[in-house]
């Protein structure tokens, strides 16, 4: 690949939380990188650790092990004073548009805050920048004098995006930034994000549970499950038939597409869908974290943790049974495998 320094490089990152006596691995040995101008997707369901990854990268969660490099500099355990400097280059847009803007301050005040925090004293310069950013997100400049409650969810997300871009960062983390938006509004915001990226060579970390959106927006995708990377590769491969990990496959098949014929075909092939057993089982370190729910699991999956290894061009997978499990589908029909063999449960 290109010899340029990646904008962000996450290596073997682990984050642990303790609640009472229980220790949970929110993130466990996660590795990925973001090249300049690239959009990398972090995909997973609840408990996958994708939001924790965002917090760890921003220094809002303590890192237990591993490293985070930003333009080659190790920022993993930086104290706030130095961490602060990175915020000029690295910003975030959160999920909840109703919660991410201080309701007691005007939009203009909220947008000026990053500049003031970093020492900008020239009010005119700040104000001009505020207007400039409002225009770039296609909002009227009069918005600066209004309060958040006067705007819709989609408009608030655009304001949040404007805030993130005030300091002209190189990397923006989008933590489920469009997940709570309606379809039509989502399309507008996604288009805006693409537009902004093209204009300024931004890199994005796009966190989402929505595979369709991820497929549309991302160059590469990292699939997380219970804190570990299952698979990582080009977006089209990961979100298509060529995915290498059983979990990715399960995800892909589970997402309903707006096409009644396709859905009907899936249903016909699936037969009766037996529920996958609850995923709150205790997981040991030395096993594959997806084994309890995997239709193709074998004894080795329970005793040995699979490491990430090359799967297809530019892709890696953490699975003992790749590529054999794929032929097992071909053998018994696309989705019969969804029916869990009762004997394989621990």
């Amino acid at each position: 690949m290109s010899p340029e320094t990646p904008v962000l490089s996450v290596e073997h990152l682990s984050v642990r939380y303790r609640r009472g006596r229980r220790i949970s691995n929110a993130l466990d040995d996660v590795t990925f990188e973001v090249q300049p101008g690239e959009t990398v997707g972090l995909v997973g369901e609840s408990g996958s650790g994708k939001s924790t990854a965002a917090k760890a990268i921003l220094g809002l969660a303590p890192v237990y092990a591993g490293f985070i490099y930003f333009f080659g500099t190790d920022i993993t355990h930086l104290p706030f004073k130095e961490r602060r400097e990175t915020y000029r280059q690295m910003q975030i847009v959160f999920q909840d548009p109703y919660n991410s803007l201080n309701p007691t301050r005007t939009i203009g005040d909220t947008l000026s805050e990053p500049m003031e925090a970093f020492g900008e004293r020239d009010h005119t310069a700040t104000r001009n920048r505020v207007y400039e950013m409002l225009e770039r997100v296609h909002l009227p400049t009069s918005a600066a004098n209004r309060y958040p409650w006067q705007f819709s969810g989609g408009q608030r997300q655009r304001i949040a995006i404007a805030r993130a871009l005030m300091l002209a960062p190189r990397l923006v983390i989008l933590d489920e930034a469009v997940s709570s938006l309606d379809l039509s509004v989502q399309a507008q915001v996604l288009n805006l994000l693409q537009e902004l990226q093209e204009a300024s060579a931004l890199s994005y970390v796009f966190i989402s549970h929505d595979l369709g959106v991820v497929r549309h927006m991302c160059d590469r995708v990292v699939v997380l499950y219970r804190g570990r990377v299952m698979e990582s590769g080009p977006a089209l491969t990961v979100s298509g038939r060529g995915s290498a990990h059983p979990y990715t496959y399960t995800l892909n098949e589970a997402v309903p597409v707006p096409n009644p014929d396709a859905q009907q075909a899936r249903r016909a092939a699936a037969g009766s869908v037996t529920p996958l057993p609850s995923d709150t089982m205790k997981i040991r370190d030395e096993q594959c974290v997806f084994a309890p729910r995997c239709p193709w699991n074998q004894p080795r999956c329970w005793s040995e943790r699979p490491l990430l290894r090359p799967a297809y061009p530019d892709g890696v997978v953490a699975c003992h049974r790749y590529p054999e499990w794929q032929s097992e589908i071909a053998r018994s029909g696309p989705l019969d495998a969804h029916v869990l063999p009762a004997t394989e449960r621990r």
Partner: peptide, 10 residues
Amino acid sequence: LYVAAARVSG
């Protein structure tokens, strides 16, 4: 969330 955002604003 805006508290976290303020932190990230410096």
